[in-house]
Design a protein around this nucleic acid. Structure first.
Lengths: 127, 127
DNA sequence: CATATATATAACCAATTAGTTAATTAACCT
DNA sequence: AGGTTAATTAACTAATTGGTTATATATATG
């Protein structure tokens, strides 16, 4: 992988790894703790590999404590991803606005329909 | 790819595709317009493939207009990615805070050092 | 209809990924 | 020293990715 950002996005493109991040957002955990929810689906070496991907991407840090390897989220590592996302905020918020507008129109129509119905016209056709 | 979010992150994990999104954030463009900056590095079918990845991930939409295929950003498609990122905002902002605190301490120390120097004590040692 | 332009598909290939099992390292505990 | 627990490394495999070239489709135009 050439650039940092691609490496991070690639690391995030896996539900197991995202679940691990979610777990780590609750606090530090060592490898076997992190592995536990996944050992039905995959082996421990697979978990080790996933953690290595997250570590190399700079999204977590792994330290040593006796035979354990406590991992924690590296908040700093999320910054450039977040920053990249910011570039597109306008676009998804715009579409939130559009949704908002759409919902308002729908509601307005429903209200109007309800009103006419109440008034006895009962012609609820749209369009 | 199983889940939507993984598909989106995977789509974003490529600098060519991110560049295409950047281009589309400036406005609609058809395939050959989008391809132009990359034709030194790759063929047109490669570009088509990248666009398909972005389209399947729901990050762009492609329409038809005669023999052209105008593409545009699908703002809506960014929402769930942004939403996922939000879950971690606290963590990267926390580390922004830590940086901020760190910088403030450094600055405070520098100022203090400068002050004592001005007062003629010229003992600028730190720590 | 013939041709040019814009784009997509097919068939293929090399590199990477996500997993496996088996073996290895490291640290602790009697 | 010997055993147990925690984690990693090695060697392998199947599936996916990102690219290729050659071919095909679709639309506009002379």
């Amino acid at each position: 992988m050439p650039d940092v950002l691609s490496e991070k996005f690639a690391a995030l493109a896996d539900p197991t790894r995202r679940a691990m991040l979610a777990r780590l957002s609750q606090g530090e955990a060592n490898v076997s703790e992190l592995a536990k929810p996944f050992l039905r689906d995959m082996s421990l070496p697979a978990v080790t590999k996933h953690l290595k991907v997250l570590e190399r991407a700079g999204l977590i840090t792994k330290t040593r404590e006796a035979q354990w390897r406590p991992c924690k989220l590296n908040g700093d590592g999320f910054k450039d991803v977040a920053e990249w996302m910011e570039l597109y905020r306008a676009y998804w918020e715009e579409s939130l606005d559009r949704l908002d507008v759409y919902l308002k129109t729908v509601m307005a129509k429903k209200k109007a329909a309800a009103k006419t119905t109440v008034k006895g016209k009962k012609d609820g056709r749209q369009k």
